[in-house]
Design a protein around this nucleic acid. Structure first.
Lengths: 366, 366
DNA sequence: AGGAACGTTGACAGCGCTACCAGCAACGAC
DNA sequence: GTCGTTGCTGGTAGCGCTGTCAACGTTCCT
């Protein structure tokens, strides 16, 4: 009834200005561009704000300025380790800025992505980070029309919307196959799950490398749309073995699958790499301490996220990057699981901590 | 220069109202409480909004209504798998609501948490999800004073701020030790990393259970403040073995450490569970397909996140839960790695897919 | 010395929406 | 038939901040 909203405790810009003895607009400028104030007023506003514990009202700021300080981030999965690394980079980079992150999960659906994009753009984000290069035509049109900087992450390709940071999954897959050839493997299977666009491009790279060597057979490829998991790695490998019992290597589209294959080999008492070599993708932390240690492709996911956010923030503040497309490359980390074919069935287990040989390549720039 | 911001394309509530032939305030009501409109106006506004592609301006709404539709979420890590499951639950639950998630990473620092909390509360969030029960006194005071619903997640304890959902890490650890006793293990080591409050409580549970049996020795505990990893599991286990070569079981504070211990055992040709039993915590997916399969404690992380967000949303809309403290319990999933002591050194590997025996317990309510 | 240029400050209006309250019609109770 | 009561609708007045522009004092140039 008689309970009116108490205004007593509310600290607005006006209160700060009054205490500092300046006009509200001057106080406002202090928070947005302190250099524009004289030193005297600057210190006065600063101490007044601190004394009152002033915190700006972001909604009012957004409404008045017609823009937000929000970076929209669209990623396809919250579960996948790969994206948590990227996200960490994005959050770390944004923390030291005044921008905040608005995250949404497309669940690997470009239709969902389109819907979320529409939602995001309606709120006029200061910038946008989107995953990959496979948007719907509608999404692409919205991105092209958006009047904020945009970074596409996770891979590089032709025709960037704006900025782009990633690496060539195709080239990385070719490098893996080349490495396996080098180690004497010929009958190389491919195991993939989820089959999102980037996994598909890894498969494409594998296929092209195998074809180049005249070794490609469709029967060597086992994939599924099911989300990836360690258990699934074992199951897909079982399928592959049933089809092609005499394969000598397996290229897994990610590390979870590779671990599953490793466990399945152990279960079946198949020597790794003696009988079958295993290569994964992403180089998650556990790959280096598995027994045998597992070869994988290292991609700079944290750096990718951090750089993407940094590029975006710079662009939002008018400092556009010299090169809008940044290829972070990849490294094939050669470990025990793919070392040269040998006849003995027990892998060398002593060198768990042995230095990893690396093949470092920037993927080709489009 | 002469380029003024074009206002042409802007669809505001006023435009929708005009097309629908109603007043702006009526149109506004349509979006917030459609039932308050007559059916005729409701359909008119609805079709007008759809025709114009109207999207409300959240900043204006927040400013006018003095509240936001943002749920603040404070978690200690973006890397940890455990939190990605919780987060997925939170995002899934929020998706079907009008609330959006604002996520921040405290990096396991309660000081950082306090700082972020201050930031969040200044923006008047509609609700808050915070991790754990170990806030600073200052944070606690802010939470108590906050006029929005709050859910504490990940564990339960006495004296909730508002709502709480989780389980007792202490009881879970005691259940693990009990299980190991039951399987004939006596000299049980504890391996822990990061040592955040919840890991600490697992350690406390382990210590109390061991003391109850008169088997506790400080030398059996190896911990570090270092962030957890598979590799670290191997290293800590190596330390433990150097101290106590004749242990017969290792309780790992999480699954990554357990996997590291397993690999280290393989490296050293220690039979699991023949010579040493291994138990992890969290029951990540890979635990079930490792060789041998690894015993762990299943916690309903996805459900925890989803339920937390759902409880919060309900509370924000006036439907407070009957029981503000929800104990989700845990299950000790018994697998090969901790089965009864046997003299032969090769574990049974045939039953990879065998049904897991479970010990299900709601943790005790405080 | 006069004027331009710059740096600094403030007045005003309005961003798009909703809280609040008033008004109006339709209906039922006496 | 009069007086509530209920259900729906609209007018007014901001929410707290910033864009724009004008005005001021100072400095520098010619």
């Amino acid at each position: 009834m008689g309970r009116k909203r108490t205004k007593s405790g509310k600290i607005r810009l006006a209160e700060v200005a009054e205490l500092a003895g300046v006009s509200p607009i001057t106080a406002s400028r202090f928070f947005r561009n302190p250099e524009a104030l004289s030193v005297a007023k600057r210190t006065r506003v600063e101490s007044a704000a601190k004394e009152l514990g002033y915190v700006p009202n972001l909604a009012a700021r957004a409404l008045a300025s017609q823009r937000t300080e929000v970076i929209g981030v669209l990623i396809p999965s919250l579960t996948n380790n790969v994206f948590s690394d990227v996200l960490r980079g994005i959050y770390d980079a944004s923390e030291s800025s005044r921008y905040s992150i608005q995250l949404s999960n497309t669940r690997y659906s470009i239709l969902q992505e389109e819907k979320l994009l529409r939602l995001f753009l309606a709120q006029k984000p200061a910038g946008l980070i989107v995953t990959g290069i496979d948007q719907t035509a509608e999404s692409r049109a919205m991105l092209d029309a958006a009047d904020c900087p945009i970074v596409q992450i996770m891979e590089i390709g032709p025709d960037p919307v704006d900025m782009m940071i990633g690496f060539s999954h195709y080239d990385a897959a070719r490098a893996v196959v080349a490495h396996l050839f080098e180690q004497g493997h010929r009958k190389i299977g491919f195991v993939g799950a989820r089959m999102d666009p980037r996994v598909q491009r890894r498969l494409d790279g594998y296929v092209s490398a195998m074809k180049d060597a005249g070794l490609f057979e469709q029967r060597l490829v086992v994939t599924t749309a099911t989300p990836t998991s360690v258990t699934l790695g074992g199951a897909l490998f079982t399928d592959l073995l049933a089809r092609e019992p005499d394969i000598d290597a397996v290229f897994c589209a990610n590390d979870d699958l590779a671990l599953g294959v490793l466990f399945e080999c152990r279960r079946r008492e198949i020597a790794v790499p003696g009988q079958i070599a295993i290569v994964g993708f992403n180089d998650l932390e556990f790959m280096a301490s598995a027994v045998p240690t597992l070869t994988s492709v290292r991609t700079n996911r944290y750096e990718m996220g951090k750089t993407a956010a940094t590029m975006l923030i710079n662009a939002m503040e008018g400092r556009r990057p010299e090169h809008p497309v940044l290829d972070l490359g990849f490294k094939v980390i050669e470990r025990q699981s793919s070392s040269a074919r040998r006849s003995d069935s027990r892998p060398a287990v002593s060198g768990a901590g042995a230095a990893n040989k690396m093949i470092a390549l920037p993927s080709s720039r489009d």
